[in-house]
Design a protein around this nucleic acid. Structure first.
Length: 121
DNA sequence: TGCTTGACATAAT
DNA sequence: CATTATGCCAAGC
């Protein structure tokens, strides 16, 4: 499905807003949920254009490897990690999040292949 | 207008 | 694992 540029960002923001506290989603996942599958890059671009005053929980979107994506401003990367840690998300010694454990799985989402969930902690 | 970049993802090597 | 190539498309120059 293709959408007008103006609607693309709106759809992305709508999805990101639904990510609950203490969970994360990947760029590709957000793209899919916004009916923009395959356009993960646009998600990052959309969030980049916020980077400031918005009420959108941009910090909950990370990349597929479970890491906070590197930015132009190195400081922001650290800020994002701290935000997530405040929400209770745990980073391993390599600075990565275990997606199997922390990734958001919306119930109404179209089936997406995911690894078995380890409910330890 | 056309070319290059970039908060990405995936498959191939 | 890491590197490379390709698809995506909005912004910036």
């Amino acid at each position: 499905m293709k959408f007008a540029p103006s609607q693309r960002y709106a759809r992305i923001y709508r999805v990101v807003e639904r990510i609950p506290r203490g969970r994360v989603a990947t760029y590709g996942q957000v793209a899919s949920l916004a009916d923009l599958s395959g356009q993960a890059r646009q998600v990052g671009y959309a969030l980049h254009s916020l980077a400031g005053g918005a009420k959108i929980p941009w910090q909950r979107v990370i990349n597929r490897k479970g890491e906070v994506s590197p930015r132009a401003e190195p400081g922001m990367e650290r800020v994002q990690r701290e935000f997530l840690q405040q929400e209770g998300i745990v980073f391993d010694e390599r600075g990565r999040v275990d997606l199997a454990r922390w990734q958001w799985h919306p119930r109404s989402a179209p089936a997406e292949p995911r690894p078995p969930v380890n409910r330890l902690r």
